[in-house]
């Protein structure tokens, strides 16, 4: 697509997203807000795991930490929302770096297990630090009943996340991250400080996840450890990204919208068996579209474009 057409599409899309909430009410607005949050969460997961190939199985740890830091600061210390949210982002970033030092040295399934264990550990910790978090009773946040506010805050953050990924993709940092996924040792002997690059991406993803957690807590007004540290949230980020195509800018967006809309429809129609359909969908993706829906489109397109050129003679 030409640059002008691209900008026009982006402009129309953005205007549409800004105008959308004024045509929606109640449940529908809540659903669109929820969907935008998942677009952002999947994109954030993709920012680290999709590009580096290090499968983070516990992203919900940072989401939960963000939710709790925001909630505790607001409830126990009377801090207002935005400063509390900022603190949550900073703290989660530091937590991600501390976790990264030991875990980013291990690869494959070991890294996945370590991050999963970390997210379960933070859930346990939150449950047991009851002086601060009220444990299993959960925390009630000040109620702010303004659906537009949450829609626009989440929209803003999601735009920021997607723009960040788009920017990284164009920089040397992005190329470095992909080289880590493709062959980390080769990348190292070419002078790439893979550890530092992984840390930077991991830390950044931790910050974004925590910001979503904090907004989510304020939006829901009530949080408890079992919910904001729900392992299924981690799985959903992963599934959405792979469904759309990991390591691509638009993949997680496509995946989040498709899976989000589909679960919503299936859940409303077949309340008791909808997970069967979701399962079939995931298995079908893995079998037939290993690069995801969007990944498949990108590949066919680039192959067609190269075929259109005069074929170079192979040796």
């Amino acid at each position: 697509m030409a640059r002008g057409a691209k900008l026009l599409t982006l402009g129309v899309l953005f205007a549409g997203l800004v105008g959308l909430p004024f045509f929606l009410t109640g449940y529908k607005l809540r659903f669109v807000t929820w969907l935008l949050m998942w677009v952002g969460l999947a994109s954030t997961w993709n920012l680290f795991s999709g590009y580096t190939g290090y499968i983070n199985f516990g992203p919900v740890a940072f989401f939960g930490v963000g939710a709790y830091v925001t909630a505790v600061l607001m409830v126990k210390a009377g801090v207002s929302f935005f400063p509390a949210l900022l603190a949550a982002g900073v703290l989660a970033g530091i937590a991600a770096l501390l976790l990264g030092v030991p875990t980013l040295r291990i690869r494959g399934a070991y890294f996945a297990i370590a991050t999963l264990a970390f997210s379960e550990a933070t859930r346990s910790l939150t449950l047991n630090l009851s002086g601060l978090t009220e444990g299993g009773k959960g925390l009630m946040l000040p109620i702010y009943n303004n659906a537009y506010f949450f829609y626009f805050v989440i929209l803003g953050l999601t735009v920021a996340v997607v723009a960040t990924v788009a920017f990284i993709q164009r920089t040397r940092f992005g190329i470095t991250l992909v080289s880590i996924r493709e062959d980390e040792v080769a990348s190292q002997v070419l002078g790439v400080n893979t550890f530092l690059n992984k840390m930077a991406a991991f830390g950044l993803s931790g910050v974004f996840l925590a910001l979503y957690g904090g907004i989510y807590a304020y939006w829901q007004t009530f949080i408890e450890p079992g919910e904001v540290f729900n392992v299924l949230y981690s799985v959903q980020m992963l599934v959405m990204t792979f469904l759309g195509g990991s390591g691509t800018l638009l993949g997680p967006i496509v995946g989040a919208v498709v899976l989000g809309a589909m679960t919503e429809y299936l859940w409303a129609t077949f309340t008791y068996v909808y997970l069967i359909f979701v399962g079939v969908l995931i298995v079908a993706t893995v079998l037939f579209l290993p690069d995801g829906v969007w990944g498949y489109c990108v590949q066919t397109q680039s192959r067609r474009r190269r075929r259109a050129q005069p074929a170079p003679v192979l040796e």
Binding site: I175, D183, L190, V192
Partner: peptide
Amino acid sequence: FQTIRIFPKMTVLQNMMVPYG
């Protein structure tokens, strides 16, 4: 490397852009 270690999914030119400096 003896067993080739290129970055398979990257383009040829992107492969050349990975080395530091």
